[in-house]
C-alpha cells in the first residue's frame, strides 16, 4: 500500500515547530474543504460526497495551467476555481434531481471518475507521477513573506518554512467562513434551509429550488477547488492519490464533529480531527507504524458512529435545527 496519508507531513521533516505548523496548515485546508460540505449538507440538505473531486479539479487545472501552459500562478487560480464551478453545475443539472441516496452515490462516482482520469489520461495529467512544476511563484512569494515579515518576529527560520502558507490558509479559511455565514443568514440562506427541510414546501412557495441547489453545489465546488489548490501548495505535488474519497469522508467527520449548521464548528472540527490524525504520531503506543495509522482511522470511525448515534447535532450544532434524525 502507498503511504497512507499523503496529506500528512512525512517524518523526515519532523521537528517541533515545523510539525505543528504543518498540522495547522492541514487543519486550515480541511476547514476550507468542509465549509463547502457544510453549505451543502448542513444548509441545503444535499449530500455531496464528491467534494474531494472538486479539490482535484482545482489543483490539477491550476497546476497544469502553470506547469504545462505557462500561465501565471495568480491567474491560474481563479480560472481553476471557475472551471470547478462549471463542472459542478453540469454535474448538478444531471444529478440533483435524483433522490438523496442516489445523489450521494453519484457524487462519489464523480470524484472517482475525476481521479481515474487524473491517473490514466497520462498525456494530459502526467498520470501517477503527478504535476510538480507550479510552485515557483508561490515559493518566492512565501520566501518574501518570511524575510520581510516573519524574520522580524523571530519566525524566519527554516522550521517556519510553511508559516506563510499557514497564515494565508487560515486567513482565507476565516474569510470564507465569515462570508458563508453571512450568506446563509440572508434570505438566500433561508431558502436553502427550507429546501433542506422540505423541498416541496419551498417549491410551493415559488422557489426555483434547482437553481438554489445548483448555487449551493457551485459554491461548494469553488471552496473545494480552493482547498485543492492550497493542498497543492502544501504537498507540493498534484497526484491522483491525494484525492481519494477517503478525504471527503474525513471532511464528513469534521462536519459531524463540529456540528451540522455550525460554521465555527467546521474550523474547530478540522482542528480536532487533524490533531487526532497527526498528533497521535507523537505518542509512542508501542505499536508498529501501520498499527498507529490504522488506529487513527479507527478513532475517526468510532467518533463518527458515536456522535451520529448519541449527539447528532455535533459539538456546536443546535438541537432544534438538527439536520440528522427523524
Amino acid at each position: 500500500m502507498h503511504e497512507l496519508l499523503p496529506l500528512a507531513i512525512s517524518f523526515d521533516f519532523f521537528n517541533g515547530a515545523d510539525f505543528w505548523v504543518g498540522v495547522g496548515v492541514l487543519a486550515g485546508i480541511y476547514t476550507v474543504l468542509t465549509l463547502g460540505l457544510q453549505l451543502n449538507v448542513g444548509f441545503t440538505g444535499i449530500q455531496n460526497f464528491g467534494q474531494i473531486g472538486f479539490a482535484a479539479i482545482g489543483a490539477y487545472v491550476m497546476a497544469l495551467l502553470v506547469s504545462d501552459a505557462d500561465w501565471s500562478f495568480w491567474l491560474a487560480i481563479p480560472v481553476a476555481i471557475g472551471f470547478a464551478v462549471c463542472v459542478a453545475v453540469v454535474l448538478g443539472v444531471i444529478t440533483l434531481r435524483l433522490r438523496a441516496d442516489f445523489f450521494a452515490i453519484a457524487t462519489i462516482a464523480f470524484s472517482e471518475i475525476v481521479r481515474y482520469i487524473a491517473q490514466n489520461a497520462r498525456g494530459l495529467t502526467h498520470g501517477n507521477q503527478g504535476v510538480q512544476d507550479y510552485v515557483a511563484t508561490w515559493r518566492s512569494f512565501s520566501r518574501d513573506v518570511r524575510h520581510d515579515v516573519l524574520d522580524g518576529i523571530g519566525m524566519g527560520g527554516v522550521e517556519f518554512n510553511q508559516m506563510p502558507l499557514l497564515i494565508v490558509t487560515w486567513i482565507a479559511a476565516l474569510l470564507l467562513l465569515l462570508l458563508l455565514r453571512h450568506l446563509t443568514k440572508s434570505p438566500w440562506g433561508r431558502v436553502l434551509r427550507a429546501i433542506r427541510e422540505d423541498e416541496d414546501a419551498a417549491r410551493a412557495m415559488g422557489k426555483n429550488t434547482l437553481r438554489f441547489k445548483l448555487q449551493s453545489l457551485g459554491i461548494a465546488a469553488a471552496v473545494g477547488a480552493f482547498a485543492g489548490i492550497l493542498l497543492a501548495l502544501q504537498t507540493p505535488n498534484v497526484a491522483p492519490d491525494n484525492y481519494l474519497p477517503l478525504y471527503t469522508f474525513i471532511g464528513y467527520a469534521v462536519l459531524i464533529l463540529g456540528g451540522l449548521t455550525s460554521w465555527w464548528g467546521v474550523a474547530v472540527g478540522a482542528l480536532i480531527v487533524q490533531f487526532v490524525l497527526e498528533a497521535t504520531r507523537l505518542i509512542d503506543f508501542g505499536l508498529t507504524e501501520s498499527q498507529t495509522s490504522s488506529m487513527r482511522f479507527i478513532i475517526v470511525g468510532l467518533v463518527i458512529i458515536l456522535l451520529v448515534a448519541f449527539r447528532p447535532q455535533g459539538v456546536f450544532g443546535k438541537r432544534e435545527e438538527m439536520v440528522l434524525g427523524d
Binding site: 453571512h182 434570505p187 427550507a194 422557489k207
Partner: peptide, 18 residues
C-alpha cells in the same frame, strides 16, 4: 418570511450585498 415573493435578498448578489 420565506413565502414572500420579490425578495432581492434571495438572489446571491442580494445575499452578498444586502
Amino acid at each position: 418570511l420565506l413565502a414572500a415573493p420579490h425578495q432581492r435578498g434571495e438572489s446571491l448578489a442580494g445575499a452578498l450585498f444586502p
